[in-house]
């Protein structure tokens, strides 16, 4: 933006802006100086975007080439069985709704738990504070993979038989809730002391202050990071396939891959689907963030 001198500075063509050729040419250059600078800036932005897209395209082509099975100058590439891919891509794709369902249910549970944990963390009541820190410490101190198995294996002993789906959702929800509690804590902390004081001075009770003044502002702050975690979760949901009872993308990929000795192909299909899902979700998140930023107040 600063490199003005790099642009075609002289007022060289008034013609590209002039739709009306009868206008006196004398008054033009005054306007066109600013216009030209603006145009040059716009052009630079456009060029940047175009070059980025182009580079993306090249990187994609290189990636594709790496899986082409061709050999060039002695560099070998990966050979895939496209017959297998064609036959099984549908079967794996059928797991997408399951993956999204697990992610959606888990993020909902996680958001709820994270909020409670964050409130507990801010609480002055010792047992609540302890419960919150205990939960976060325990969950963050153990692997997610292990937690998923734990809920799948332990709950039946208590006489609670959950479907693989719900055991997975509980594990993922608990796990992400512990991490996301930090987001909410930051969100709650981002609401200034003055806001609470103004509410209290109006006569609001602590609960009213929380509900009407603090939480709405904290949630606004927390929405973009929640979106990030949702995207991350679509991928971590693959771990629930380990229990063997949720027929999501990863489970299906592993199943057909193993059965037909085409693990690599199956995993690559799954990878493609995960990548596509995250691209779409990132795009949606971008729109939501832009909207939040626009109404920023």
């Amino acid at each position: 933006m600063i490199r003005f001198h790099a642009f075609p500075y002289p007022a060289f063509k008034a013609d590209h802006m002039s739709t009306d050729s009868t206008t006196a040419p004398v008054s033009k250059p005054v306007l066109s100086q600013a216009e030209l600078l603006y145009e040059a800036q716009q052009r630079q932005t456009r060029n940047f975007r175009r070059n980025v897209s182009l580079s993306w395209g090249i990187l994609l082509l290189i990636l594709l080439y790496l899986f082409s099975g061709q050999s060039f100058l002695g560099i070998r590439t990966i050979r895939l069985d496209f017959e297998f891919i064609r036959e099984n891509i549908g079967f794996i794709a059928e797991g997408i709704p399951q993956t999204l369902l697990v992610s959606f249910l888990s993020i909902t549970l996680a958001t709820f738990l994270a909020l409670l944990a964050a409130l507990g963390r801010l609480s002055t009541i010792p047992p609540l504070y302890a419960l919150s820190t205990f939960y976060v410490s325990l969950i963050r101190g153990t692997p997610l993979y292990l937690q998923i198995f734990f809920f799948f294996l332990a709950l039946p002993q208590l006489g609670i038989i959950l479907s693989g789906l719900f055991a997975g959702v509980i594990a993922l929800g608990l796990n992400y809730g512990a991490y996301m509690s930090e987001i909410f804590r930051a969100g709650l902390a981002s609401v200034g002391k003055g806001q609470r004081e103004a509410a209290i001075a109006l006569g609001m009770t602590p609960w009213q202050t929380m509900k009407r003044i603090v939480l709405p502002q904290a949630l606004r702050f927390a929405i973009p990071p929640i979106g990030n975690d949702f995207i991350a979760m679509t991928k971590d949901s693959a771990l629930v396939s380990a229990t063997g009872f949720v027929h999501e993308v990863m489970w299906r990929a592993t199943r057909v891959g193993r059965a037909q000795f085409h693990n690599l192909e199956a995993l690559i299909i799954a990878a493609l689907f995960y990548w596509m899902m995250t691209i779409i979700l990132s795009y949606v998140q971008g729109i939501i963030e832009a909207r939040l930023a626009r109404g920023d107040r």
Binding site: Q195, A198, Q217
Partner: peptide, 24 residues
């Protein structure tokens, strides 16, 4: 207050009616 402390997530009118509605 010195720093006004208006509620940024509410319009001017909502700021002003918040107390009477919620508290009273």
């Amino acid at each position: 207050f010195q720093e006004f402390n208006l509620f940024p997530h509410m319009s001017v009118l909502e700021n002003v009616i918040e107390g009477p509605i919620t508290v009273k």
